[in-house]
Amino acid sequence: MKHHAAVTDIDLNAYLDCELDEARRAEIEALIESTPELAERVALYRADTARIARLHAPLQDLPIPPRLLEAVRRGTAPRPARRLAPVWAGLSAAAVLLLAVWIAPSLRTAPEPLVAEALAVRSGKTNPVREISAAQLASIDARDAVLQTALSLPVRVPDLERAGFELARMQLFDESTERKAVQLTYRDQKARSFTVYLRGPAGGDRFDLQQHANLQVCIWQNDSLGVVMLGGDMTAREMLRVATLTYGDLEF
């Protein structure tokens, strides 16, 4: 809506909300003072704004329902250690070394289908139907929404900053309606790549650690979701830490 050759409704709003610099403010103010129509419009907007605040002000005094207070208490209570945590915490350096030796035989065996899928995706042998860079999805919620839509599951994009990894891209692989898949690629400052391959139903509950060539492999799955985490140039100890963070942050 244009009221005057030199002032628009956007200007009037910015004036009302004190968002103009001093020079422009003075200019608009002079126009308002000399134009009754503008002065009336500003007065009405100002009155509407004040009434919106007054109309809703009492809502802030409403007692908070017990269920919301309980949600805060439950959400911020010290959390019991998860079953995974003692496993991780109990792994001494020696145990990790032993683990590395123990899993070494898997180097010589062909990867199982789920891992083979993840390896093919990571190596670029499987083309995504869609690729989104992290820069295109700046907010946590936007990333979660893409992942949840792609998989039709309430999973969240893990935040691995605590492990030094930042999300670089999301790749969507729509193999079929029942077995949609997504690869999340993370990178750290050493340019190491950590990928999380997620896809639909993969089988029963399972958590495995393996090694294939120079990649650490961590597999977690349940009846609804299969996850293969692949870390390059990582020790088994590092892999366990990043995989634990990933597992926790998926919130599934």
């Binding site: 911020t76 209570a77 010290p78 959390r79 019991p80 250690a81 998860r82 079953r83 995974l84 945590a85 496993v87 915490a89 683990l99 123990w102 899993i103 898997s106 605590r162 509950d205 399972r206 958590f207 495995d208 650690l209 393996q210 977690w220 634990t244 963070l245 597992y247 926790g248 942050d249 919130e251 599934f252």
Partner: peptide, 25 residues
């Protein structure tokens, strides 16, 4: 190969968080 079956019960609890969880939460 190792295999174990973690249960779901919230987000991870790392050492740092354990150390200062009471005060910060």
């Amino acid at each position: 190969m190792i295999a174990f079956f973690p249960g779901r019960g919230g987000r991870e609890t790392d050492d740092k968080r354990k150390a200062d969880s009471d005060g910060s939460t």
